[in-house]
């Protein structure tokens, strides 16, 4: 079957098997390998992408179901060579180690901040509670999201504020 959806702002049309999972469509059909997968049962959240602005587990969405929708992946976050504040926050606060859960965590954090620009620690922990990180113990992920909340324009803002 044919599916047409918007990925990181670009409309793409591809011929697919109806059973193809969105995570495989992104990784294999579009070669967007920043979205990972870590389980089969929608528990780990490594495959998290934004669909119409909301984080979803792309291992549990058929590519066909995403037809007509807008999907955003980690590759679509950087704007004009400038990292999203969440990406910068993960660097600043050591919010990642092996990096495998990171794209999913970053996307969820982006969606959280879009709805709630100043989340509490508890709200951040709740927002990422459907995603597993095996490396960081979450402490620095929470800090990274707070960093992004405090630096809404990201690295540019830090440079400016230091001037």
């Amino acid at each position: 079957m044919q599916v047409t959806l918007t990925v990181n702002g670009d409309e793409v049309t591809r011929e697919i098997e109806p059973r193809m999972l969105l995570v495989h469509f992104l990784r294999e059909t579009l070669s967007l390998t920043g979205t990972h997968w870590g389980c089969d049962t929608s528990n780990c959240g490594a495959c998290t992408v934004l669909m119409d602005g909301e984080p979803v587990k792309s291992c549990t969405v058929l590519a066909a179901m995403a037809g007509g929708h807008e999907v955003r992946t980690i590759e679509g976050l950087e704007r004009a060579g400038e990292l999203d504040p969440v990406q910068q926050g993960f660097i600043e606060e050591h919010g990642l180690q092996c990096g495998f859960c990171t794209p999913g965590m970053v996307m969820t954090a982006r969606a959280l901040l879009d709805r709630n620009p100043d989340p509490t620690e508890e709200e951040i922990r709740e927002a990422i509670s459907g995603q597993i990180c095996r490396c960081t113990g979450y402490v620095n992920i929470v800090k990274a999201v707070r960093w992004a909340a405090e630096h809404p324009a990201g690295a540019a803002a830090t440079a400016a504020s230091a001037s």
Partner: peptide
Amino acid sequence: MKRKEDPRFVRGKGRYVDDVS
């Protein structure tokens, strides 16, 4: 010191085995 490996990971540019094609 901030990690030298992070810029690729936060962009989804890490290269894991399943990314090899």
